[in-house]
């Protein structure tokens, strides 16, 4: 059980003995990873173009940090936009589906057809239709987030325990109130889980979209590193991609602690 505090960020500092041990173990894992990296480059176990040294990474940062930061910002902004717009649209459609059965019946086959399509195969279309820019990349993220959240949201609402519906309906709860006061709150834990997966998918799609879009972003850093055999760029792009995903996921988790403290 997560300890509940009025200051959710404190969970990061106030650790129990077991948590501290787990934290140290996690840190040890990362340290070993770093050690392997250093061993690989300094003992020349891999060719020079395959992995950069930490010094090379430092120089890269010194030289180009404004441009790198701008590209990171592009990716983060696109991922958040795609995730937010896609999720909000999906939750809105979920609401409409639960309200009007005819629309639910109408939408279901469309979802069944489009859900299994890997969003990535659509990326060329997105770029042709919406352009090699923010619009194209964000649309790709919206597409992926939308269908994932649509399926999850629908499932979450359908899973509302009957006893809650019953308790509310015997009190004469309205159709709108049933959704706002019972079904959506009951779905919160499920929806938070879905949001985390959706956000990671959003970051994924944005970076992959940037591979082909030539519109800046972490994806383009990686592609540059690959095309021009720049291990420092390539490695930096990958590391930053991971860091963005981890940090954003952590943020969602911290924000959601309050929302799911009753679980």
């Amino acid at each position: 059980m997560t300890r509940v505090t009025s200051k959710p960020w404190l969970v990061l500092i106030r650790l129990s003995k077991k948590q501290r041990r787990n934290f140290l173990l996690g840190a040890l894992g990362i340290a070993i990873g770093l050690g392997v990296w250093l061993a690989l480059v300094y003992f020349k176990l891999v060719p020079k173009y395959a992995l950069p040294t930490p010094v090379e990474l430092g120089k890269l940062w010194q030289r180009e940090s404004p441009r790198l930061l701008y590209n990171i910002w592009l990716t983060v902004m696109r991922a958040l936009c795609g995730f937010a717009l896609g999720s909000i649209m999906a939750l809105f459609v979920t609401f409409i589906r639960s309200w009007i059965p005819v629309i639910d019946t109408f939408i279901e086959p469309i979802v069944q057809i489009f859900k299994p399509v890997p969003p990535l195969v659509l990326s060329p279309f997105m770029i042709i239709w919406f352009g090699s820019n923010n619009k194209g990349v964000i649309t790709l993220a919206i597409w992926g987030s939308f269908f994932l959240m649509l399926v999850e949201g629908h499932e979450a609402l359908k899973a509302t325990p009957l006893v809650y519906l019953r308790a509310a309906s015997t009190l004469g709860e309205s159709k709108l109130g049933m959704r706002l006061r019972v079904m959506f709150p009951a779905a919160i834990p499920h929806l938070i889980g879905a949001m985390r997966i959706t956000l990671l998918l959003g970051i994924n799609l944005v970076i992959l979209g940037e591979f082909s879009a030539a519109a800046g972003g972490i994806g383009e850093i990686i592609v540059h590193g690959y095309r021009f055999l720049r291990p420092d760029l390539l490695f930096f792009g990958v590391l930053v991609g991971i860091a963005v995903a981890v940090v954003l996921d952590l943020l969602v988790r911290i924000i959601s602690i309050r929302l799911r403290r009753w679980v």
């Binding site: 006893v163 308790a167 509310a168 309906s169 015997t170 009190l171 309205s174 709150p185």
Partner: peptide, 30 residues
């Protein structure tokens, strides 16, 4: 359903995301 009838089931059917005060005020909100 009528406002002058209260119903109690075998299961308490409390809404887990509401604290006790919010649960007992649930009918008033509705």
């Amino acid at each position: 359903p009528r406002k002058d009838v209260g119903i109690i089931f075998q299961q308490a059917n409390l809404l887990p995301w509401r604290n006790i005060l919010q649960n007992v005020l649930f009918p008033i909100e509705i």
